[in-house]
Design a protein around this nucleic acid. Structure first.
Lengths: 225, 225
DNA sequence: CCGCATCCTCATGGATACTG
DNA sequence: CAGTATCCATGAGGATGCGG
């Protein structure tokens, strides 16, 4: 018999004619934005995505992905290595509100990592968000390594971006704990402080080009958490 | 005996060292951002707030307000008319990410109001969000009436803002359904189309100063919902 | 293995009634 | 008016199963 998948999910809506409310109808459920966070770095397989989201139950991930797909935020791709999930163009535009929310929540990072989990790939969203507004011509590239994960932060005329580092070219690499890297990006630590606490291989100029000293303690974070 | 209020709420956290996740720990629960939406227009009493949020159960509102207060997003004020809830400075900064999310969700309004509820005061968040970036010197003010509610949209050198209209000064007033007002603000309708569908008392120049024709169909909304 | 679906338990949400 | 108390429905979380 035909397996007609009954769309038995009536995904609780606010039922309000308001852009914010309708947006929250789509991305306001638990885990949803963390799934998008994972996909902002590029398409991923189900299993990788599950690890990237961090702690989501498998049935919930499947359910959320189904909802996201039917709302045109996520699309499935058939790679040669199996199924890949990717953001649609509209879904990728969630980067802006998500970065804004992340910047708002920055003061919450000041209490440090504590017992919380950490995945270096999450920084691939955070770093560009924190550096948003910066631009450089010619481009600057800085390798950053934390918690065993390497990424390249690049600032060009289009602004900052971060990608996982696959090659092994001798770029300027700064190594430090998540606290230090975030503190540097957030302007909470000066470059000198960061170098004292971390480890810089290469020239300091690249580091200060990516994290300009004038941003330090610049108070882009204004209020008390 | 002492009523020691056991803080029995262990408000389910993602437990991740990530600004987005920590932000969602505070404002990611259902209804929370809609409560903030209400308070962005100014301090409100419990009962007014409940009406403004639209459909929230009273126990949930009390619980959310308690959490928001203990997280320094909302603070209670003692007005002479009783308790008032207001945003803290940090809480008020949620306007930026909320506007960003609203702009992202704008395509969802294109299917019209349908059966959804509508409260004109919600536009006090939406209109400035849609007009963000606009500035005018000298300032322009336009009275807008929809669904029995009047507001004044003002654009000055600091950008757009909207406040409920209490006085009865003879300002230029445009009257139209929510669909029309939103369509105009979103640049989906031209001024001529809006006037055809609505009703303008006063001069067209003020209307076009607030909703510049060049924004119409400008494609600030890029993707498909 | 990967990509889910099912089952079960319990915390959370939602509606309504009630109280200082 | 400003909530609390109660009860039921629903969604989250965890374990496990199962076909490809």
């Amino acid at each position: 018999m035909d397996k007609v998948r009954q769309d038995s999910k009536a995904p609780r809506s606010y039922g309000q004619f308001c852009a914010l409310a309708r947006g929250l109808d789509l991305v306001g459920e638990r885990w949803t934005l963390l799934i998008v966070r994972g996909l902002l770095a590029g398409p991923m397989s189900y299993t990788d995505l599950r690890a990237s989201v961090g702690g989501i139950a498998t049935n919930l991930l499947a359910e959320r992905l189904r909802a996201l797909e039917s709302n045109n935020i996520v699309q499935r791709q058939l790679g040669d290595s199996g199924v890949l999930y990717a953001l649609t163009p509209w879904g990728a535009e969630l980067r802006t509100p998500m970065e804004a929310l992340g910047r708002w929540a920055l003061p919450l990072l000041e209490r440090g990592q504590g017992d919380d989990a950490f995945q270096p790939r999450w920084l691939a969203l955070a770093i560009p968000a924190l550096l948003r507004g910066a631009a450089a011509n010619p481009p600057v590239e800085l390798g950053i390594e934390t918690d065993g994960f390497s990424m390249v932060v690049r600032i060009d005329e289009d602004g900052p971006s971060a990608v996982a580092r696959t090659d092994e070219q001798p770029e300027t690499i700064f190594t430090g704990s998540p606290d230090i890297v975030v503190g540097l990006a957030a302007g909470r630590l000066t470059i000198d402080q960061a170098i004292t606490m971390g480890n810089l291989q290469g020239d300091r100029d690249t580091l200060s080009a990516v994290f300009p000293p004038e941003r330090a303690n610049a108070g882009s974070v204004s209020a008390t958490p």
